[in-house]
Design a protein around this nucleic acid. Structure first.
Lengths: 334, 334
DNA sequence: TTGTAGGCGTTATCAC
DNA sequence: GTGATAACGCCTACAA
């Protein structure tokens, strides 16, 4: 390990030579091809084992033009959202016999493009999550002929996309808060430019306009993390804004706001009801009302779909939408 | 995307032909080799762009015998531990110009071995976390000559390993609980066979023997998830065991126990103090005392070290230990 | 500065 | 059933 005895790894040729057969036969034996006599097969297996021979996957994929790997390019996602997504991707990939080539922490177009480019030839297709980039721009810079599936990108008829129904999810949450009798409902949105954030804010506005037309509409911007959620609520109150409910664009910000409120003597949900979006495990423990988005399922479906695209049987429809469910917990139970 | 115009991706040969030069020159131009006249370089770049040419990384790595990718094989880790680890790995990998080939959910030897085998030829080395497998067994089945770094495996002078100092961490937690005046301290251990679990249990026993020799020692087994933590505490109390403190082998189980206790009318830390291990973000929010293990740092260091091994300058020492810190929060603050 | 040609480790198409 | 041998796409001496 790290200093194995043979400075040079055994190749198919080494096995062939020692077994006294041709490389073609070794290849057949190793891949379980039927037309190899039991005798030769045994001999080859023995030699292979003694040499600790492992086929070179890179060479193999170059030869058969198939890597059995899929690339995954992600932005800098938060804790459990990230792990759930990757878990979903990895599980399904494993089931389908694919490896996962991961590249996260990619924000801007250049990084995403570079990540995908360097993957060409080592993956059969890629799954990209870049909610901050316009599909057109993105598509224009990707390697031609590489099956690509977009996660949580703008709906669009030209490229395969899977995403959450953010807007109707946000409508459901907001409507729930309105149903509680709250009127001073503020929305802590995600970063400007982020599509999910924008769609959720749109849902909030739509619901307010429809179900509480006379109530004030207040949107402030956060950065999807807990600190910015806390800061947003603090600033609003400091500015004298009346608040009896908070709908944050994701759970982490909601948790920041919720925690801050309690630490500053405000009762939740008594004085302020709080709701988030995502349903990360933390939400369960803190009793946070939220929209459950089934992140792992998203990952699994993405892999399934991409695999189909790779195999050439890309189902007709480009757009696939996953509907989130409202989960009511203590933070809005009065 | 998924249906690009050219059914066949452009290769270096296509570029060469259209630019009226040899493939060698294109290769040099693409790789920024100095000895290419500005004219030719320009022409080549233009053609490459027009063809949307992206080098085939697989072929390239076969040729230069370097993939710029590292494999990561993990067991089925829980939420934030997983995400923090992968984040740390990925960040450092990105900095060093490596891709990450991920394969998680691997429990038994066969799976781990297979995962690593199928990675040969597509990665330059692997990082393996398999706390349930003996190093000797594992090492025997790995492809020869593949740089390998083990995470949280048994200490050992023959193979490079990075791991937490589980035992002294457990001693610190237990000692803290004893210092609180608690005497009926139970330990909810991880799955038998898991090395981290075993070391932490050992630390608990050692601390009890040394600092509270007359107090009862109670160890029950959990599965590292919240439900088993809750069940463990419930069963202990149902059996009439006296309990005034719980030290769980990881945070998820501690959280399960803590939540169960509160839901069943037991005050924490009043009647029962609770402590965990890992310091996942959730612990912060629930005020759980725990050992902080800097998971992301572990990942980063692992990549750094493996990269060094790949480059052949493997530092002398095989074993690298990361010491965790005690973080005291409400769950043991009286 | 540029081209020729061999090789990286496998697979697959032919023959035999 | 087995063996040559030509790909796969790229890199790199070695020549020119």
């Amino acid at each position: 390990m790290g200093n194995g005895k043979p400075p040079h790894n055994a190749t198919i040729r080494d096995v062939a030579r020692l077994a006294g057969v041709s490389v073609a036969t070794v290849s057949r034996a190793v891949n379980g091809h039927p037309s190899v006599s039991p005798d030769t097969r045994d001999r080859i297996n023995r030699v292979a084992e003694s040499l600790n021979y492992t086929p070179h996957a890179g060479a193999r994929s170059l030869s058969i033009a198939k890597t059995q790997a899929i690339g995954v390019v992600l932005p800098d996602l938060f804790g459990e959202f990230f792990s759930e997504l990757v878990r979903g991707l990895d599980r399904r990939a494993g089931e389908l016999g694919y490896h996962l080539m991961l590249s996260s922490l990619h924000a801007d177009l250049a990084r995403v493009t570079r990540a995908v480019s360097t993957m060409r030839g080592r993956v059969d297709g890629v799954i990209i999550m870049a909610p901050q980039l316009p599909v057109k721009t993105l598509a224009a810079t990707l390697p031609a002929g590489m099956p690509t599936l977009l996660l949580n990108s703008e709906r669009n008829r030209t490229h395969p996309v899977i995403s959450f129904d953010n807007q109707s999810g946000a409508v459901a949450v907001t409507r729930h808060l309105i149903g509680l009798g709250r009127r001073h409902i503020v929305h802590i949105a995600g970063p400007a430019g982020n599509l999910d954030a924008r769609e959720r804010a749109d849902g909030y506005r739509r619901a307010m306009a429809e179900f509480a037309p006379d109530a004030p509409v207040t949107v402030v911007e956060g950065r999807f993390d807990d600190l910015s959620g806390a800061a947003a609520l603090r600033d609003l109150l400091a500015a004298g804004t009346q608040v009896d409910a908070v709908f944050a664009a994701n759970d982490m910000m909601a948790i920041g706001a919720l925690t801050w409120a309690r630490q500053n003597g405000l009762s939740v949900p008594g004085q302020i009801a709080v709701a988030g979006f995502d349903d990360i495990p933390l939400a369960h423990y803190l009793g946070l009302t939220t929209m459950r988005v089934h992140v792992a399922e998203l990952g699994g479906r993405a892999v399934t779909r991409l695999a189909a695209m790779i195999d050439g049987d890309d189902a007709g429809k480009k757009l696939e939408i996953i509907t989130p469910d409202l989960v009511i917990r203590e933070s809005t139970r009065q």
